[in-house]
């Protein structure tokens, strides 16, 4: 006899995973950034299990999309593997820190940090894509020693793009923190990885985003095994979210290719900033510094996120010199 109550619950979590996958993919922040707040704020899942489920789902989505990008030769496996030296180390330290935080009942720190990370990730993510090719920079010794050159065929401009990265050491430093946040918060830290490769190493945006996607799976797998033994992978949740987020991210990337009006993404950025603000409020409440009633927090978070996104939209539009070309 099938337990329909449990089945409904499973399908509801799966649907949440699909939604997280779609929003994560459309905003470019990844499913984990949406899944953890969704599970903790709306499904009543403890942050320990939400983070574990998110890490597992992150590997699934990374493998799913990285397969396509590596086949097309856009993701640079060599640069990705080289940077994983720092990211995997960061993920181990992050996962161990997570264990310490949880065993000392300091979960509120995770909520606060998560909220701050989401909110600060939105700005570099919305700016992403404005500059397809980086300005040329003088190559340094790391460009040659660490073989940071590569090429890919750009379908849009129908030409072969050659590039060479710089400042490998700076990329490694940023990647360490990307790994740390991944192990600590159960996310892919795609925004920080992009910062490391785009800003620090001066790689083209396509190479940066696809290589970051490839790397996310390795980083998340490092944290996941530690989470497994510590008991933070809850089978019922992780199964539903792994399937859901994978399906959602596929839908998201298919939608992204079809929609001509990219400004629709701003709706999802509003959702994301709402989740970020609400996570901070939950953290404040749990820390017992100040008790924010859920209903009040909900209203304030919605208002705050709408204002924040409108301001960001206007600021970027002015910086761009015109409306409607934000990506």
């Amino acid at each position: 006899m099938i337990d329909y109550g449990a089945l409904t619950e499973f399908l509801l979590i799966l649907a949440g995973g699909v939604a997280a996958g779609i929003i994560g993919s459309l905003t470019g922040l990844g499913g984990g950034s949406v899944l953890v707040p969704l599970l903790t704020l709306f499904y009543g899942v403890p942050i320990e299990y939400a983070t574990g489920a998110s890490l597992i789902s992150t590997i699934a989505t990374s493998a799913g999309s990285a397969s396509t990008y590596t086949k097309k030769g856009i993701a640079n496996i060599k640069i990705g593997v080289g940077l994983e030296v720092a990211t995997t180390l960061g993920a181990i330290i992050g996962a161990l820190t997570f264990e310490i935080v949880v065993t000392h009942s300091l979960q509120y720190v995770l909520y606060l940090l998560f909220g701050v990370v989401i909110l600060t990730s939105i700005i570099p993510t919305v700016k992403r894509g404005k500059y397809e090719y980086p300005e040329e920079k003088t190559l340094d010794f790391t460009s040659r020693v660490f073989q940071l050159g590569g090429k890919y065929y750009d379908e849009k401009s129908k030409k072969e793009v050659h590039y060479t990265g710089v400042r490998w050491w700076l990329g490694e430093i940023i990647m360490f923190f990307a790994g740390l946040l991944s192990g600590l918060l159960g996310i892919g830290s795609g925004a920080l990885k992009v910062l490391g490769m785009d800003w620090a190493m001066n790689l083209p945006m396509k190479v940066t985003t696809t290589t970051s996607n490839f790397m996310i799976g390795i980083t998340a797998a490092t944290g996941s095994s530690i989470y497994w033994y510590a008991g933070y992978i809850q089978f019922f949740l992780a199964s539903a979210t792994a399937i859901g987020v994978l399906v959602g991210s596929r839908i998201g990337s298919a939608v992204l290719l079809k929609i001509s009006n990219k400004e629709i993404r701003w709706i999802f950025f509003t959702v994301l900033s709402f989740l970020g603000v609400d996570m901070i409020f939950k953290g404040i409440t749990l820390s017992k510094i100040y008790n924010i009633p859920p209903i009040d927090g909900f209203g304030i978070a919605i208002t705050f996120s709408i204002i924040l996104v409108i301001l960001l939209f206007i600021k970027l539009s002015i910086a761009e010199g015109k409306y409607g070309n934000l990506r």
Binding site: G5, A6, F10, G231, F236
Partner: peptide
């Protein structure tokens, strides 16, 4: 399954990966 689906208590070791 009813216990497997009970994810609200992270302190119950029988239902998670540990």
């Amino acid at each position: 399954i009813s216990q497997l689906a009970n994810y609200e208590n992270p302190k119950s070791p029988s239902y998670n990966s540990s």
